[in-house]
Design a protein around this nucleic acid. Structure first.
Lengths: 165, 165
DNA sequence: CCTTGACACGTTACGCTATAACATATCGAT
DNA sequence: ATCGATATGTTATAGCGTAACGTGTCAAGG
């Protein structure tokens, strides 16, 4: 996958985060409208919460935030909103962390490869299409037909790597 | 990674499972002995339980089995044994499933790529070194230093694929 | 021998993650 | 205006994982 002009910068790079957020949110809204999805208040707010930082948030963390905004503090409230976002490609689930993050490329076909910093908890969604191809090849030689994949790595982001020396 | 003579067959292939199990167990024991690891009764039994099927088992499933063998039915019993096995490369954790499986290549450096069948729950540990390389490349271009990775795919194994047509 | 320290195990208690199930409300199309 | 589909409110509970502390065991060194 090559970088397109509309691609947001990688999480680890210093960037104008409010522009980054706005860009993704706008694209998510356009995509929702185009596909007849209902981006209701909880759902939209949940997406905004996920977009606030380049970190994965647990469902209960999201729930706390939603409760602060007046929504009911019941697990299904958060899980339903998160599941909706994940189902429609507006968010991703990070299995290693039992957590969720906003999708940085809503509406584009891509296999996300997550880089999770153990130093600062930052999380980047790297282009994983090459990785996915290698995985498809491995699966094919076993006669396995892939439906979905999760590709996640933990380690140190550039900044934390620097600090650790 | 090329196939070595001692490599066990892939989970999806029909094979002599008791030989497969025995082989892996012997290698695990050799490796434990060589590294001064203590493969105590709970730990050994836990590994045997994981080896019984090519499926991932939840910690509480393992716990039930252990309890049947006379060990205490307390979560830490299972988690400690499982953590030991994972820490020393005798088992893997499958994050998508919150479950564990025996390592099929104990003692050899490898990055496992898991293929999880949604039809029959079978789980194969495919060679993931090519995938890992692609991942390293993606990480490198973001300046990220990878520590560990999880590579997992869900889909249909050859048999279930056949049945689904 | 016996002390000591590291490691393993027993046990209690608890916290976090996730979903089932059912009631109510809202939306959108006919 | 009605009706079916979708979304939300709410209660309860299931499943996954760990903290913390006490006890036992074993091997090395005094």
């Amino acid at each position: 996958m090559t970088t397109r002009p509309t691609d947001p910068p990688l999480a680890f790079a210093r960037h104008d985060h409010s522009a980054c957020t706005g860009n993704v949110l706008a694209r998510a809204e356009a995509m929702a409208a185009g596909n007849g999805l209902r981006l209701t208040p909880v759902r939209r707010r949940t997406l905004e919460i996920l977009l606030e930082s380049h970190k994965a948030l647990g469902a209960y963390e999201v729930l706390d935030r939603l409760a602060g905004d007046g929504f009911a503090r019941q697990p299904p409230v958060a899980y339903r909103a998160l599941d909706f976002l994940v189902d429609h490609g507006l968010a991703h689930r990070i299995r290693r962390l039992n957590a969720f993050c906003a999708c940085m490329h809503p509406g584009t076909a891509h296999v996300p490869a997550f880089l999770i910093c153990e130093g600062c908890d930052a999380l980047a969604e790297a282009p994983g299409d090459d990785v996915a191809r290698a995985m498809q090849a491995a699966a094919a030689s076993a006669g396995f037909d892939i439906d979905r994949m999760s590709i996640e790595a933990t380690g140190l982001c550039p900044a934390c790597r620097e600090g650790a020396r």
